[in-house]
C-alpha cells in the first residue's frame, strides 16, 4: 500500500515537474522571442532624440550652405589632419621585457664552449 502511494506520488511529481520545467523555459523563450525585441524597441523610442528627417528639413537653412563652402571645410579638415600626422608624439616608451634566467638561452651550456 505504502509503496503504491509512493509511486503514484512519484508519477505526480514526474508530470508536474516536467510541466513546470517546460513552462519555465517556455516563458523564457517567449520573452526572448517577443518580449525583448519589444522592450528594446520601446527603449529606443523613449531615448530617441527628435531628429528632423531629410525630407522635412526647412529649405531655407540650406540656401547659404553651398557646395563651395562644403569643399572649403573639407579641404581645411583634410589639411589639418595631414599636418597632424607630421606632429606625432615623439616620446617613445619601450616596455622592457623582463628576462628571467633560462638554461635554454644560457651561454654556459652552449655547444661551442663546453665545460
Amino acid at each position: 500500500m505504502l509503496s503504491i502511494d509512493r509511486i503514484s506520488e512519484g508519477y505526480l511529481i514526474l508530470i508536474t515537474g516536467l510541466l513546470i520545467v517546460f513552462s519555465a523555459l517556455l516563458i523564457l523563450v517567449l520573452f526572448f522571442k517577443y518580449g525583448l525585441p519589444l522592450l528594446l524597441y520601446s527603449y529606443k523610442i523613449i531615448t530617441k532624440k527628435r531628429v528632423i528627417k531629410i525630407g522635412k528639413q526647412p529649405k531655407k537653412s540650406n540656401e547659404e550652405f553651398t557646395g563651395e563652402i562644403a569643399a572649403a571645410i573639407s579641404t581645411a579638415v583634410h589639411l589639418y589632419l595631414n599636418e597632424n600626422h607630421d606632429n606625432e608624439n615623439a616620446v617613445l616608451t619601450i616596455r622592457q621585457a623582463r628576462k628571467l634566467y633560462s638554461p635554454w638561452s644560457s651561454k654556459i651550456y652552449g655547444t661551442h664552449n663546453r665545460l
Binding site: 517546460f22 519555465a24 517556455l26 523564457l28 523563450v29 522571442k33
Partner: peptide
C-alpha cells in the same frame, strides 16, 4: 539569446 527556441531542448533533457 539569438535562437531562444533551442532553450526547450534543455527542458526536454530533464
Amino acid at each position: 539569446i539569438a535562437n531562444p527556441k533551442l532553450m526547450l531542448l534543455g527542458a526536454a533533457a530533464q
